[in-house]
Structure formats: structure tokens, C-alpha cells
Design a protein around this nucleic acid. Structure first.
Lengths: 328, 328
DNA sequence: GTGAAAGCGCTAACAC
DNA sequence: GTGTTAGCGCTTTCAC
């Protein structure tokens, strides 16, 4: 900047004012400055600016794994909004590891980020409390943080479970199984509850034999389907708590010579890319991934503007994507 | 830091020295400082440090789209190494748009990143030249930048094309089709060349009828397969230039009552997650995505250490992942 | 409409 | 082993 000022024959503060368009400067001086900037390839130093202004245009995004398509989509939406508002995103993968997460939180604090977008890696009550003590703008995504009054946005898993079950019931199914996953994680539990409540609402008994355990992976869906189909009275439809298990379920059924959807209807959850390409294409409950990212970012920006607003918690509804794995 | 110094009863420089472990400090003072830091929740200001030291620990990563699984994996590997070396990654999506890319490059320069990892969005000769003029450490990934002597790492697409074709030939196939994609992009063209050369090396004639156009999408693979199977003498095997088209091809074959692999063998390229879950699971040529990211990051770190080393260009070999879509 | 000067929080060179 | 000081490149207040 000094160089520019010298070459343009004006003061440093004048250069600053044309760079930031911050007060009236004679047309003459402005042109001089701009030419000098171009000639020297000058780019202002954002570090110095941030130090002086005591605010950065960086925001930290902590996710378990950006290669997981679910988080990849969310990250994408976040980056989009960030770019539009000229915030840049620092990518942090926690691998669901609390220490790694803590290390990244420290790093983000030291970098003086303007805010943090946060998918918790396990029980993160303490980190969040610490962040709040520091008045760091923060939005929690996807997984709740117990005992924290904090901005958050997540999917309405319960409504998604309802949607899937409702669809199967409307198609005439009465024996509807569920491939569940680790009930300690809230999303899966909520999907299950949506399933049970919808069964009940339609006068269908809940049969524990029709609930098979899974772990969100393909293989567990395959195994669960085998177990279900071995039942004396096998189900005619399956609600799998995610797409990977649904695809595993279809594979198992096909391997036994069953036709999907004629002999077994299958509905998934998530709507990952894969779902369009299976045979038959998978009917599934879509999580609003882009919308989650977009909203989280908007909420963070709002929080930065008004640090004292009451915490906001949003639940985004899912949408049923009807393809061919349930017929209909 | 002043606060810490005051509370600990030492000078600011002493605090700095315990924070950075930079010179001998009495055990006493060290304890005082650490206690004060903990009590005050002090975290050093990385902005100030970077400004003073004239070097940051940020690196910029520009990719077309982090939600594309290929780049997601690469990004993941980059982040991993970065974390281990305490560099943080600024995530930039160009959407293949030169203006967006230029905007991000400017942003990264202003942020004074220590280096840039770069998947070019189209012909980026100028940006790269500008970056080099500024002596910005830079590694180009995946797509070559014409006319630039610069560090780069990419897949050996040619060798991948060979691998796929070779595999099919060894399985006894003689009429081997290819689903290609836009020959203007170099990777696809190189895969094709690998295919042709391998055919020739085995005394098999190249038949233009057996090459069907695609655009990397599922639907184009489906269409291409239909076209191929309508031929008077249809192929017995297909090499699709990516997995999505391979899966489309399998769908089309299945829809006609053909069995894969008995009636038609199909091999893909990329080895995306999806490939494990198709029916039958897809035999495919795996790109070393993690390895690309890892190597790119290592090369960037090396370049930062030695700005004047001659540019290095690496081609990483692919690997054939045999599943079930080719039999064998 | 312009310029001079202080200071953001840190580090490094230099004295003691 | 410790403290003092100058200065990284910017913004902002103040004086003109």
C-alpha cells in the first residue's frame, strides 16, 4: 500500500479510502491510485485489515467427513452462500473424534473466525458452552447438542419416518418391516418413532419381529433383509432407515428371486445420488441437504448481526421421492 | 496477551516465548503464564502472528465442486495432511466458472495463503501465469494447464484405459465397445487412446461403430448401450469411460433381458462408492483419489519449502477393481 | 478533499 | 533469563 501511495503521489490513507470506497476522493486521485494498483499488482492484505478491524470474513465449518455425500452437499450449500456474501469457508473434518474437533475449534478461535458451523462429533456440550462463553456465533447442524441453548437446524426425521410408512400403507401394505440403526443416535430413533406412530394411527399393530437392526451400511441392510424374509410371515414392505441399507435390502431380495417391488416394496431414507441408479430406482425420503446448509449459513449470518437474539431452532421437513422400488 | 502478561507478572515477550516455546524461560515464569492463559481463556491471535511473520498457515483449495465425490475424496485427503501439518484449508468451488475461479484466486491472494491447490476450471493459463509471477506456491490437480510449467499431479488415464481393455481381452472378448465422452476433455480422450492402443496391441481391429458417445451421465450410458446393442453385430463387452455410464449401460442391458456379465461384460472407470452397490457389483478402474490429494498436498508443502525447485509432474497409475460385472 | 499518526496483537532483534 | 522496542499493513480519528 505504501508503494501504491508513493507511485500515485498520494497519502496512504487516500489509497485506503479508494480501496474501500469509504469517503469522497477526487476523481483525479482515484484514477492515479487505481492505475498504480494495477501496475503494481497490488492486493490489499486481508490479515492486516482484519487485525485492525477486529473482524474477519472467515467462517469455520466442522463436519465429521466432507467425503460423506450428506455433508458434502451441506458444505456445498454453505460455500455457495458464503461466496455470495464474501465469506470464505475453512474446512474442518472431525471424523467424529472429539479431540480432533477440539483441536479445530481452537484453531478457528485463533484464526478469529467470524462464526462456526458445527456438526457435533459426539456429545459436545462442553465445547459449545465454551464457544458461547466467548460469544462466538455458532449454528449447530444435524445433531442436537444436549443441554445447550443454541441456534440449530436439523431434519424432521420423525416426519420423514411418517412419510415413508404412510406411503407404504397407502399402497396397501399391512406387514411393514423396518431396518433400524443404532437407537442411540437420535435421527434414527426419530425415524423409527415416525414409523411406529404411523402404524398405530392406521390401526396396525407394532410387531418387534419386523424390526431388524442395521448400522447404516449396505451389508447390514442385506443381512437384515435376510432375517426379515426368513420370518414365518415375512413382510411385504420394508422401510430402511437409510438408502444404503435399502439398497442392501433390495440386493438380498433379488438374490432370493424376489421381485422388487412386486414381491417386496422398499423405501429408503436420505436420497443420496445412488438412489437414482439402483435397479429398480429407489423410492426414498429426501433430506433437504442443500436447504439445511443454506439455512444454517443464513442463521449464522443473522447471529453475527445480532449476538443477543434468542436462539432459534429449525426443523426442515423431508420430501418423498417416488421412484420404482415400491411400485405405485 | 497483554492481559496475560500483566496477570502473570511478566513481560509480553516472555508470554510470547512460552506460547511459542521459543527460548529458555524459567520454570516459574512458565507456570505463571500458563495459569494466566488458562484463567483468561487466552488464545493467541493468528492474524497478528501471520501479519508479523509474513506467513500464514492457510492454504486455498479450488475445485469445481466439492459435492462431486471425486473432488470430495481428494479434498478429504488434502484436509487430512493439512491437519497433520497444522495447515487449514479454505474451500473454494469454482463450478467450472472462470470468473468465480478468478474471484477466489483474488480472495486467496488477499488472505495471503501459503499456497494454492488448484483444479482448473477451463483454460486457466492466465491465472496460473499471474500466480507464478507472484511466486505463489501452486499445485495443479487432475487437469493440465496448457502452456504452464507448474507442479501437477494427475491420473494416468491412458494406463487406466489399457487396464480395462486388457482385462476384457483376457476374458476372451473380441468385440469390445467403448462408451466415450466429450473428446475435448483430455482425461476421456486419454482413456480412449489406451483402449485403442490395447486393441491394436492384441491384433484387434478398431471399429468406429463400437464407439458410442456419452456425457458422463447415467442416461447417456443407457442410450449408448441401446445404440450398441442394436448393432447387427453387437459387442460382447463394453468399456465405459466412467462408472455412471457403466451403470446406465448395465441398466439398458438388463432392461432387454440380457444378463451381465454372461451376455454382456461391463467395466467402468473411477470406482465411485456406487460401484460396489450395483447389481452386479461393477468391475472398474479405480482412480487413486486419496493418493492424488495426498501427493498434491505433499508437493505443495515441498514447493513452499523450495520455491525455486524445477516443476514436478506426477502421473498416478490406476488399479483394476474386479467385482462381478465382467465375470471372471 | 487530504494527510499524519496511533494502534490492532504479535514477533524478533537487541539490550541488559 | 528477562524486558524494551520497532514494525508487519492496514483503518480510523483527528487536524488541516
Amino acid at each position: 500500500m505504501r508503494d501504491v501511495a508513493q507511485r500515485a503521489g498520494v497519502s496512504v490513507s487516500t489509497v485506503s479510502h479508494v480501496v474501500n470506497n469509504t469517503r469522497a476522493v477526487s476523481a483525479d486521485a482515484r484514477v492515479q491510485v487505481q492505475q498504480a494498483m494495477a501496475a503494481l499488482g497490488y492486493k490489499p492484505n486481508a490479515l492486516a485489515r482484519s487485525l485492525r478491524r477486529q473482524k474477519t470474513h472467515s467462517i469455520g465449518m466442522i463436519v465429521p467427513d466432507n467425503a460423506n455425500p450428506f455433508f458434502a452437499e451441506i458444505a456445498r450449500a454453505i460455500e455457495d452462500i458464503g461466496f455470495a456474501r464474501s465469506y470464505s469457508i475453512i474446512l474442518c473434518n472431525s471424523d467424529g473424534n472429539l479431540e480432533k474437533q477440539a483441536a479445530y475449534v481452537d484453531l478457528l478461535i485463533e484464526r478469529r473466525v467470524a462464526g462456526i458451523l458445527f456438526v457435533a462429533a459426539g456429545v459436545s456440550t462442553e465445547v459449545v458452552a465454551d464457544l458461547q462463553r466467548r460469544r462466538m456465533p455458532l449454528v449447530v447442524i444435524d445433531r442436537a447438542v444436549p443441554g445447550a441453548a443454541v441456534d440449530m437446524v436439523q431434519t424432521n426425521h420423525y416426519q420423514g419416518g411418517q412419510l415413508a410408512t404412510q406411503h407404504l400403507i397407502e399402497l396397501g401394505h399391512r406387514r411393514i418391516a423396518c431396518i433400524a440403526a443404532g437407537s442411540d443416535l437420535s435421527p434414527s430413533a426419530e425415524r423409527m418413532t415416525g414409523y411406529r406412530d404411523t402404524l398405530a394411527a392406521h390401526g396396525l399393530a407394532y410387531d418387534p419381529d419386523l424390526v431388524a437392526p442395521g448400522d447404516f451400511q449396505f451389508a447390514s441392510g442385506y443381512r437384515a433383509a435376510q432375517q426379515l424374509l426368513d420370518l414365518p410371515q415375512p413382510p411385504t414392505a420394508v422401510f430402511a432407515c437409510n438408502d444404503l441399507m435399502a439398497v442392501g435390502c433390495i440386493s438380498a431380495a433379488t438374490a432370493r428371486g424376489l421381485r422388487v417391488p412386486q414381491d417386496l416394496a422398499v423405501v429408503g431414507f436420505d436420497d443420496v445420488k445412488l438412489a437414482s441408479f439402483t435397479n429398480p430406482p429407489l423410492t426414498t425420503v429426501a433430506q433437504p441437504k442443500r436447504e439445511i446448509g443454506r439455512l444454517a449459513m443464513e442463521m449464522l449470518l443473522a447471529r453475527m448481526r445480532d449476538p443477543d437474539a434468542p436462539p432459534r431452532s429449525e426443523r426442515l421437513d423431508t420430501r418423498l421421492v417416488v421412484r420404482q422400488s415400491c411400485g405405485g
